[in-house]
C-alpha cells in the first residue's frame, strides 16, 4: 500500500538508539493529560518525537490532535479554561517550567490550518518575528527573507511582489508564506496543523514537497485529517482517538499492519 521511504532502515536505527539512551529525541511528552473546562482533550499521552523526522498525527475529530499540537508551543495558555498535568520536554527541558513561552515559540513554530497572513506586505510578514526580536538591519532581513521564501518554495513566485499586501496572494501562496514566516525565525521544530485543509491538490503537493525537504533541518509534527497525506510524508505516524494515543509507529508499518484494530478501522475508512 505504501512504499517505505529509502531511509527507513536508517530511521529504525535512530529510534532504537533513541529508546535506549534518549539520544535524538527532540520532544518528550510524558503522561500528558489536558482538558478545557472539565472537558477532557488528552488522556495520559506518552510520545517521543525524534529529531529530523516528520511525525504524522492522525485521528477523527475531537481526538485531541490539535490540542496536542497547541500544547507543544504553549498556545493553549491563551485559553483560560485550559488545564494540564504531565510534562513536555524540549531538548530535555520542561517547556512549562524551564522556558519562557516567547522564547519557546521562537523555537517551536506553528502553521495554522487556514493561511493567516497579517494584513501587511509580503516582506513585512516574513520579517515580523525578527523585527519583534529587534532585528532591523534591512540587508540582514532581506537575506533571511529570501532564504526563508526559497526554502518554502515561494521565492520565484513572489520575488517581484515583496511590497504587495500579503492577503492578495493566492491561498496556496499565503500558506507557503506562513511557512516562510516561521522558517525566518530558524526554529527547531515546526508544527503543521492541517496545513492543506483549504488548499487545492497542486498547492498541497508543493507544501508536502517543502515539508519533505525541510525535515533535514527541522523536526516536523504534522496533524492531518488526510490519512493519505500522513502516509505520503510521515516517517512515523501516531493515531489518536478520544484523546488517547492508540498507536504510534513507522508509517509503513502502521498503515500496512496496525497492531490495534481501531487503527485499522480508521485508516481503512470504517469510521472517522
Amino acid at each position: 500500500m505504501v512504499t517505505p521511504s529509502p531511509d527507513c532502515n536508517d530511521l529504525k536505527d535512530r529510534f532504537a538508539s533513541a529508546n535506549q539512551s534518549g539520544d535524538g529525541v527532540k520532544i518528550e511528552i510524558q503522561n500528558l493529560t489536558a482538558s478545557f473546562s472539565n472537558h477532557g482533550a488528552l488522556d495520559n499521552v506518552n510520545l517521543s518525537i525524534v529529531s529530523n523526522e516528520i511525525l504524522s498525527v492522525i485521528g477523527p475529530a475531537n481526538s485531541g490532535k490539535t490540542t496536542l499540537l497547541r500544547t507543544l508551543n504553549r498556545l493553549n495558555d491563551l485559553t483560560q479554561s485550559f488545564q494540564m498535568t504531565g510534562r513536555v520536554l524540549l531538548d530535555g527541558r520542561d517547556i512549562y517550567k524551564e522556558y519562557d513561552p516567547v522564547i519557546l515559540r521562537r523555537k517551536v513554530g506553528v502553521i495554522f490550518a487556514l493561511p493567516m497572513p497579517l494584513p501587511m506586505t509580503v516582506f513585512e510578514n516574513i520579517v515580523y518575528g525578527l523585527r519583534r526580536q529587534g532585528v532591523n538591519d534591512r540587508k540582514k532581513l532581506s537575506r533571511i527573507a529570501e532564504k526563508a521564501l526559497t526554502d518554502a518554495y515561494l521565492w520565484d513566485e513572489v520575488k517581484d511582489r515583496l511590497e504587495e499586501e500579503a492577503p492578495k496572494l493566492s491561498g496556496g501562496q499565503q500558506q507557503r508564506l506562513c511557512i516562510a514566516r516561521t522558517l525566518a525565525l530558524n526554529p527547531d521544530v515546526i508544527l503543521f496543523d492541517e496545513p492543506c485543509s483549504g488548499l487545492d491538490p497542486i498547492s498541497t503537493a508543493k507544501i508536502e514537497e517543502a515539508m519533505m525537504k525541510l525535515k533535514s533541518q527541522y523536526t516536523i509534527v504534522l496533524v492531518t485529517n488526510n490519512t493519505k497525506q500522513a502516509a505520503r510524508v510521515g516517517d512515523r505516524t501516531a493515531f489518536f482517538l478520544m484523546g488517547k494515543l492508540i498507536e504510534v509507529g513507522e508509517t509503513a508499518k502502521l498503515f500496512t499492519a496496525p497492531t490495534d484494530s481501531r487503527t485499522e478501522g480508521y485508516i481503512s475508512g470504517r469510521f472517522g
Binding site: 508551543n73 516567547v102 515580523y128 516561521t182
Partner: peptide, 16 residues
Amino acid sequence: GAFREVSLSLGATKLQ
C-alpha cells in the same frame, strides 16, 4: 483573534 495567535506564535511578546 487569529492575528494575536499568529503574532504570539512568531515569538512576539504580548505587548508587541
